[in-house]
Amino acid sequence: MKKHLLLISCIVLLITSTGSSQNSDFIPLFNGRDLTNWVLAAPEGFEVVLGELITRSHGPGTDIFTAKSYGNFILRLEFLLSEVGNSGVFIWRNPSIQGNGFEVQLLAPWTPWRPDLYCTGSLYGHVAVTNRPDETPGIWHSMEIICDRKLVTVSVNGEVTTIADIDTVETLAGKPYTGLIGLQGNHGRKGQYAKFRNIYIRDLDAEPDYIIKGFYDKNDQRRKLAQIAAVNMGAKMVQPLAGMLSEENPAAYSGAKQALFDIAAKASDPECPENIKKEVNAEVIKSIMNASSDAEINYLRWLSGLITE
């Protein structure tokens, strides 16, 4: 099983890791100047200094979170810990709900010795590293976290440390597969710190091909997330979804049908800008021309009517 996962992971990495962080699919999550895209849990928690995001206080509740939720993504960042530093990267977090999401641990080696379930690169308390990374404090390390539906892969300094099949992690069962990304404030003593820089994200839920694959996922929650991602994308998803109306897979077919309705319903809102209405409708019309049955044509025409009425 582990070998199988490693293989999948390698394929994923081959697909996704060919570019650098400056790859056009990656966008900076931290602009190096201010806290745009971020929300502080406590006012004093973090400070931006010369392109670095630095912890400024200590204790619980000093974390920082993205303003937006992310489900499937590739996150790349660099971190540096002080001696005995302790921080982490939160994934799928909802700060108002205890226990949602998980923390990819960032830890300087300190006494007592931390086991693999709690060291840098582990899904803290949920999944141990299988390949323990260098944890030397005072130097910059790079980290990549890939959330690819049920597969979470963590790499430190270019080497995979942890592969988790979320469906097999009992302690994460039933938790949402989406939420905020966060950086843990200084979790250690006063004077200890963590620094972050070059934080980039590739939001896989903004990529039509990736979203479509989610409609075939066996997990109900993840299929729902793919639907939500599709509706958020809007016009760009209409043709790929319409192509699924002749799909035999009932989950994919009914999901696509619903997502198309929801896109049209959103575009039909009196408050939806006229250009978006037109864009969505144009895609529906194009889909009608490519439709493969009367039932599909009638459905798409009905949706077009909803938008243009």
Binding site: A265, S268, D269, P270, N298, W302, G305, L306, I307, E309
Partner: peptide
């Protein structure tokens, strides 16, 4: 003020 909602008050028969 919502033509789409009015559109859903009926549907053309097959």
């Amino acid at each position: 003020g919502d033509p789409a909602a009015n559109y859903l008050l009926s549907r053309m028969y097959r």
